[in-house]
Simulated assay, not measured.
Amino acid sequence: MGKVIASVSCTLDGIFTGPKGDEDNMVSWAMPGVIDATMNNLIMFQQAEALLMGRVTYEGFSTYWPFQEGDWADAMNKTHKYVATRNRECDVKWGDYKDTITLLSGDVEAKLVELKKEFNGDIVIPASADLVQSLLNASLVDEFSMIVHPIILGSGHRYLKNISSRKDLKLLRTQHYETSGSLRLCYEVIK
Score class of each variant (00 low, 15 high):
T85K: 06
R86A: 15
R86Q: 13
N87A: 13
N87C: 08
E89V: 10
C90T: 15
D91E: 12
V92Y: 06
V92R: 05
V92D: 10
G95I: 05
D96C: 08
D96T: 14
Y97D: 11
K98S: 15
K98A: 15
D99W: 07
D99E: 15
D99F: 05
T100K: 10
I101H: 04
T102L: 11
L104K: 05
L104W: 14
S105M: 11
S105F: 11
G106S: 09
G106Q: 12
E109L: 11
A110W: 07
A110C: 10
A110R: 13
K111L: 12
K111R: 13
L112N: 00
L112H: 08
L112T: 15
E114G: 14
E114T: 11
L115D: 03
L115Q: 07
L115R: 00
K116I: 15
K117C: 06
K117V: 11
K117I: 14
E118G: 08
E118D: 12
F119I: 08
F119N: 08
F119P: 00
N120T: 15
G121T: 02
G121W: 01
G121A: 06
G121R: 06
D122T: 12
I123M: 04
V124H: 00
V124S: 03
I125S: 03
I125V: 12
I125A: 04
I125C: 01
P126S: 05
P126R: 02
P126G: 04
P126F: 00
P126T: 02
A127Q: 08
S128A: 03
A129M: 06
V132T: 01
V132R: 01
V132W: 02
Q133H: 00
S134T: 04
S134G: 06
S134K: 03
L135T: 02
L135M: 09
L135D: 00
L136C: 04
N137A: 09
A138I: 07
S139Q: 08
L140K: 02
D142S: 07
E143H: 00
E143N: 02
F144I: 03
S145W: 01
M146N: 05
M146Y: 08
V148I: 10
V148D: 01
V148L: 10
H149G: 04
P150N: 03
P150V: 03
P150Q: 06
P150F: 07
I151A: 06
L153I: 04
G156D: 02
G156H: 02
H157R: 12
H157C: 07
R158H: 15
Y159L: 12
L160R: 04
L160D: 01
K161R: 12
K161W: 07
N162Q: 09
N162H: 14
I163E: 02
I163L: 10
S164P: 05
S164A: 13
S165E: 15
S165M: 10
R166P: 10
K167G: 06
K167S: 13
K167Y: 08
D168S: 12
D168E: 13
L169G: 14
L169F: 10
L169N: 06
L172R: 09
R173F: 07
R173C: 14
Q175N: 13
Q175V: 09
H176A: 15
E178W: 13
S180M: 00
S180G: 12
S180H: 08
G181D: 07
S182W: 02
S182E: 05
